[in-house]
Amino acid sequence: MDKAALASALGAPSGFGQSQFALTRGNAFEARVKADGGAELLRLAHSRLDPGAEPPAGAAVPDLSALGPEGRAARTALALREAVETGGWTLLDHPMLALDVAGSLAFLEPDAVVVHPDGSWSVVEIKSFPLLDGSADPAKVGAAARQAAVYVLALEEVAARLDPAPRVRHRVLLVCPKDFSNLPAGSAVDVRKQRAVTARQLARLTRIEEIADTLPEGTCFAPDRPPGELAAAVEAVPAAYAPECLSACELAFHCRERTHAAGAVTGLGRPLRAELGGLTAVGDVLAAARGETGDPDDPTVAALRRAAALRAEALAHAQAPAGTEDAEGTEGTEVAPCR
């Protein structure tokens, strides 16, 4: 479904996505990297990923155009097979890959895939954030590595259908602007850890058909449905909102409103949710802290009550008039209240 259109129809449009300026800058840099048949990109791939291979004096750049994502994915698979059989360097510009996600095909479009002379495949990620003195923002590099790991998994599914199966390299090429210029610089990034984590997460996902079996008959998420009917359809699917969703999902604003209305602790972040154990609602947490509910032997409940007692003590000291003395003769001091 079109989640952005769905969010707008629900009255909670999302600001998810890149700014137009960032998209324009990224597209201009990518065009520069791939100019002249990808000569500079192939030079970086040779120097960073495969220095022992023959230098790419020239490379094949097959046409990957086809009708629809399924057609483009099939054309990409054929081009990869032909590149392995032909040998030499091959550059696939914006190939289309398909990955099974919980029983549904997700179509992915990496910036580029390079086929090496030995028949192995490498993913290329082109980003517009800079490499300053040979290093970049670790958070952005980590996000790029996780994204590339998904492409590696999708390539492995294509390779598994060939006999013999080509090797998909787990070191990807990250291409970024060098320092404050627009000159491309490359770095090899090992994504084995990210690939393993992503594979485990995909294997643990609930299958789409299992989710569909639990929905009422006739449930539909078409954005042109009446608002009440559409809201009821979305409510039928459980959601576990966390602040991290704001940077990854178009429905994040809608789910945040639902989470806050229900008083769920997930809206305060996954780390806090993990600390609170079986207490899933803010009201239950406050009641346990006040001693109204909960087992005193439960470590979570005991910690909450201790925290509430410390907060009450701090507030009492903060409200004591300056210059007074407590029972032990200690002069009252101003203490910032805990929040």
Results as ranks from 00 to 15, higher is better:
Ser8Cys: 06
Ala9Trp: 02
Gly17Phe: 13
Gln18Leu: 13
Phe21Trp: 05
Thr24Ile: 01
Gly26His: 01
Asn27Gln: 14
Glu30Asn: 09
Leu44Val: 12
Arg48Met: 06
Asp50Met: 06
Ala53Met: 04
Pro55Trp: 01
Ala59Glu: 12
Ser65Phe: 06
Gly68Pro: 11
Arg75Ala: 15
Leu78Tyr: 03
Leu78Arg: 04
Leu78Gly: 04
Ala79Cys: 07
Ala83His: 08
Thr86Cys: 08
Leu92Glu: 09
Ala98Thr: 10
Leu99Asp: 00
Asp100Ala: 08
Val101Ser: 05
Ala102Leu: 01
Ser104Pro: 00
Leu105Trp: 09
Leu105Ser: 13
Leu108Asn: 05
Glu109Tyr: 08
Glu109Lys: 13
Gly119Pro: 00
Ser122His: 12
Leu131Cys: 04
Leu131Trp: 00
Ala136Thr: 13
Lys140Glu: 07
Val141Trp: 08
Val141Ser: 07
Gln147Trp: 10
Ala149Met: 14
Val150His: 07
Leu155Met: 10
Glu157Leu: 11
Arg161Lys: 13
Ala165Val: 05
His170Thr: 13
Leu174Glu: 00
Cys176Asp: 01
Lys178Asn: 09
Ala185Leu: 15
Ala185Pro: 00
Gly186Pro: 06
Ser187Gly: 04
Arg192Lys: 10
Val197His: 07
Val197Ser: 03
Thr198Met: 08
Ala203Lys: 14
Ala203Asp: 13
Ala212Ile: 13
Gly228Asn: 10
Ala231Phe: 08
Ala233Asn: 10
Pro238Thr: 06
Tyr241Ala: 14
Pro243Gly: 12
Ala248Leu: 09
His260Thr: 07
Ala264Asp: 05
Thr266Ile: 01
Thr266Arg: 13
Pro271Trp: 11
Arg273Ser: 15
Leu276Asn: 10
Leu279Glu: 09
Leu279Gly: 07
Ala281Gly: 13
Asp295Phe: 02
Pro299Leu: 01
Thr300Gly: 10
Val301Asn: 01
Arg305Leu: 00
Ala308Phe: 13
Leu310Phe: 09
Leu310Cys: 07
Leu315Asn: 08
His317Met: 08
Glu325Thr: 15
Thr330Gly: 09
Thr333Ser: 14
Cys338Ser: 11
Cys338Thr: 14
